[in-house]
Amino acid sequence: MTSSSTKRISAISMAALLCIGTLCAQQPTGALKVEHQIGFESAKANEKGTLAIQNGTLQYTHNKESVNIPASSIEDVFTGADSQRTVGGTLGTLTMLAPYGGGRVVSMFRNKVDVIILNYRDANGGFHGSIFLLPQGTSNQFKKDLLAAGAHSSIPPDADDAKSATDKKDKK
């Protein structure tokens, strides 16, 4: 092996490492597939997108658009649990027309989801409330990441868990 080919290989590998490093730095950490419920003016209700935290900013990406909110402008973060219909939307409504109560049976099938509620201030100081549905079991870690990025919360993440457990007990 000649010295020139060794140099070329090492240069290529260095460039590849650099590219990987850059890509890793750009990729937001902990990007979650979410469903927007309400609160982000540019997004529709029930629109799917991703929620990520990058450089102290909460980033919601949907339809190739992204909305950025500085984590420090988030006044309060709440988490909770909910469920949604397995067959939802228009199809879910149409199943109600199924004969012999078939639609009612379909509506009994539900997926468990986590909910995250963010109260934040826009650049002009205006208050906003927003709600997202997250995959089950992810909201608490996401809240911890948000708090680490500079968001505020009146309830610590672990207390949220305890509170939802008490609520479930109360319901029973």
Binding site: Q37, I38, G39, D76, F78, G80, V115, I117, N119, F127, H128, G129, S130, I131
Partner: peptide, 21 residues
């Protein structure tokens, strides 16, 4: 103004949704 829950036990999701609506 922000919705005041007073003494009623209500999830913050409902307060946020009511405000936005």
């Amino acid at each position: 103004m922000k919705v005041d829950p007073s003494d009623v036990k209500i999830s913050p999701a409902f307060l946020a949704a009511l405000y936005e609506n």
